[in-house]
């Protein structure tokens, strides 16, 4: 019985430490400036379809200081890879080829039920953690496809374990005018910078940043 109690207490202690550390990592975000040491490696969650189009428009306006660029796409996605290669081919000569493309299992298909989403998200998380440990990006940039939630959780885990602070930058899709997406609602609390593109969302979510249309 005493042993059981000990295990229980240990478990609670770990959870408390984890939560405290999570708070610390999330709070630390705004003071962290990864650009000081030169180029910033960025992990871009492309997702699929409209999300890809939107985030690639954003990528098109980033300077060449953001390199290397690691793109993550869903494994069932056929189109995004071509779009990414087209964008990268349009970069300046000296900046070309400074990117990689990675595939992870989709965490949620369109119209998938909520309960089964939990399991598929866990599965995606199993792929996301080693990927993030391998790449160790400075910044994680995403705009709301389901795939970005497990990747951001994996990014936070690196921070919690003290391996590396990864700055999470979330840009809500321009399609979201009145309500945040599910990914947005989750990552509103966990991201370091949370951008919205319509003033009505800024009113509802005061912690968000509104700079007008950014894509």
């Amino acid at each position: 019985m005493a042993a059981l109690f000990g295990v229980f207490c240990g478990f609670i202690l770990i959870i408390v430490l984890f939560t405290l550390r999570l708070f610390f990592v999330v709070r630390k975000g705004s003071g962290y400036r990864p650009g000081k040491k030169g180029s910033v490696s960025v992990l871009v969650v492309a997702g699929s379809g409209g999300h890809t189009t939107e985030i690639l428009r954003l990528m098109g306006s980033l300077s060449e200081s953001y390199c290397p660029r690691h793109y993550v796409i869903a494994d069932t996605d056929k189109m995004s890879e071509d779009k990414i290669r087209t964008l990268e081919a349009s970069k300046k000569q000296q900046d070309q080829g400074n990117f990689t493309i990675h595939r992870v299992p989709r965490s949620r298909e369109v119209r998938q039920s909520w309960s089964s989403s939990v399991f598929t998200t866990m599965n995606a998380l199993l792929y996301s953690v080693p990927l993030l440990f391998n790449l160790q990006p400075d910044v994680l940039l995403c705009n709301g496809p389901g795939t970005c939630v497990p990747l951001c959780l994996a990014g936070l885990l690196l921070g919690i374990l003290g391996a590396k602070k990864i700055l999470i930058v979330y840009v809500e899709s321009i399609c979201r005018v009145e309500r945040l997406s599910l990914s947005g609602k989750i990552l509103y609390h966990l991201s370091d910078y949370f951008f919205v593109q319509w003033p009505s969302l800024k009113d509802k979510y005061p912690k968000s940043i509104y700079l007008g249309r950014v894509v």
């Binding site: 409209g50 119209r111 399609c175 979201r176 005018v177 009145e178």
Partner: peptide, 12 residues
């Protein structure tokens, strides 16, 4: 399309 959230952008 059910729950077509792109509608929000078109409406706006």
């Amino acid at each position: 399309l059910m729950d077509n959230h792109q509608l929000e952008l078109a409406r706006k």
